[in-house]
Design a protein around this nucleic acid. Structure first.
Lengths: 336, 336
DNA sequence: TGTATTCTATGAAAGCATTTATGGACGAGA
DNA sequence: TCTCGTCCATAAATGCTTTCATAGAATACA
């Protein structure tokens, strides 16, 4: 059953059927009804591929997510997909992993699929000049690209992010001002926002003119699910003689590890050790005590990102960067 | 740049270009090289929509996920997407919520998009006769449908699931045999697997010929992220005088709530209260003590589901039901 | 060696199901 | 009668796959 069959049944041309289908105004109500009746009767729906060919779009948008099983990124995908669908777009998801190669691969697959835009989530872009980001700069010449929590200065690339620098800085300042000067900074990603957070931490020390021990900045290599690994890691640091009275983590999962570390070593939280996580996820509530964590308003970020995306696709002028602020949600692992 | 341009440049017909592109054997090596060179030179890629129109497929598969921000379902989506992509298929994701209406809606959107198949995750189908499932039975006449952890007896619908009945039964038997006869069964979903788990719990009591107090079966209405809500809920039950020395939960998040409940009431785990969760997710490790939980091998389930899907699409005969078994992973909330 | 037969490589053309540009018919108002 | 606007049909364009037909090469056989 195609548009010809319908046109024949209705005694009109296929152009008229198309006009009815697409809500054109230049069609007499009586004709419209006649055609609609036939369409309903036969349960006809236009062929999406033919439509795509004619219009050069199938209203679908690619989402490249480094790891959609990650709590934070999964939520991002969830919000983005919902907003896109509300605007009539389909989401083609690819979970790429964190490596540049596989992202490049996913990107070219999506562009060959002729998606209208690509949204990237869980990125690690720092500068356009970075050779690693070349592929995205190139891709953007064909298809607009939207980054969540990343920053890339490049035409046709739009970034929506949280000011992780400031949020982390504020958290660190609160700790410093409460008298804790040995804050362990624990991170597990060298993504753009990862580096922003680290800078925020450092700048807090600078602002208060307190020297910051380099040993207090620690990168955790393990898996993003290995809470016990984090605990071991911290135990190791302690055995090496490193002392710290707070842990500021770039992710809740690291903070959860810190809480377990404290328990196993009988360190009182928050009196002997303060812990601050990031993302304010379910893990902060699951832990005991519940973890203070920076909330960066993911839902707002995603909804704004999609708004930008839709705007661009509609030919509107859109700001290349949108920055929101995050804030510390105080729970039981801090005395702030 | 289309196939005509390429054929002109290479001095062959478009049929030959198409044959080269699709790896047909009937083309002379020299011709193939000539064409490939031109293709490389101009960086030509075939138009996916036209290809879709010709082949009546764009190699994409719809995934309807009730809630991709749920820890378990997000992982399912992750595994499924990865396996699909390995087989050359794209994934079109829709997060539908748990209501039948919105699932029906998502399904019809995907079918209009002309996906080759639909995979549904986080379902709640019990019987084909159930009026609520009518839409899926109908949809299956057009497009094969694959369900994860659900059961629907219907042509063109294929189910891959864990034997949640047996896994829960075994967990309950272990508790009963260790002398705990007042096991609180806590669940938050009336999905197929939710009901299977409940039956498993009941059957364990039957097998040991121990009467099962109806009050011990409790449904938690709240959000899937509201661990504190679960804690309150359990506190309420306790205040009403209900006693129980174990909690068997249909999801880790409920078990995490149980752990928090025990702590706040100074109930020793596992000596005074055993807790068993389901899914063996990150939450079991984040909690303190770590929660014993049933692992239902999600990765295996997903990879098998995709294998079935690909088989069906290749016209192979595939079993309509595949059932795996789950098993209890013992951690610190049980003495088993 | 010549004829018949098969195989290989290729081109021409017919789909596939839409949208859209162009223009014609018709009626109304000036 | 001329002009304009409304409604609709015709035909072209979109870019690919695939079937069918065929020229020429290779093989078989007498």
């Amino acid at each position: 059953m195609n548009i010809y069959d319908i046109s024949k049944q209705a005694g009109v041309s296929i152009a008229t059927v198309s006009r009815v289908l697409n809500g054109s105004h230049n069609v007499k109500p009586a004709t419209r009804k006649k055609v609609m009746d036939i369409i309903d009767q036969y349960g006809y729906t236009p062929n999406a591929f033919a439509r795509g060919l004619g219009l050069d779009t199938m209203n679908s948008i690619g989402i490249i997510c480094a790891d959609s099983s990650d709590l934070y990124l999964a939520k991002a995908v969830y919000y983005i997909e919902g907003n896109l669908r509300k605007n009539g777009y389909n989401s083609v998801l690819m979970c790429s992993g964190y490596e540049h190669d596989s992202k490049e691969n996913a990107l070219s697959l999506l562009i060959n699929q002729r998606v209208d835009a690509v949204i990237m989530v869980g990125s690690n872009y720092i500068e356009a000049e970075d050779e690693n980001n070349r592929y995205i700069v190139n891709a953007a010449t064909q298809t607009p690209i939207f980054l969540l929590n990343a920053n890339l200065d490049c035409p046709n690339v739009f970034c929506t992010m949280c000011d992780d620098f400031r949020a982390t800085q504020e958290a660190a300042l609160l700790l410093l001002d409460s008298g804790i000067t040995d804050i362990l900074y624990l991170y597990n990603s060298r993504s753009y926002s990862g580096m922003q957070k680290l800078s925020g931490y450092r700048s807090a020390y600078d602002m208060r003119e307190i020297p910051c021990n380099r040993e207090l900045i620690q990168f955790f290599e393990g898996s993003r699910e290995d809470i016990d690994g984090v605990r071991h890691f911290l135990c190791g640091l302690r055995e090496q003689g490193l002392t710290f009275h707070a842990v500021l983590a770039s992710e809740d999962m690291l903070a959860a590890g810190a809480v377990k570390y404290a328990k196993i070593n009988n360190i009182a939280i928050p009196d002997e050790l303060s812990v601050i996580g990031y993302n304010n996820s379910l893990l902060t509530v699951c832990s005991d005590p519940e973890i203070s964590s920076v909330d960066n308003h993911l839902e707002t970020l995603c909804s704004r990102l999609v708004k930008t995306c839709i705007g661009v696709l509609n030919g509107e002028e859109m700001p290349p960067k949108v920055i929101y602020s995050g804030e510390l949600v105080r729970k039981a692992t801090t005395n702030l």
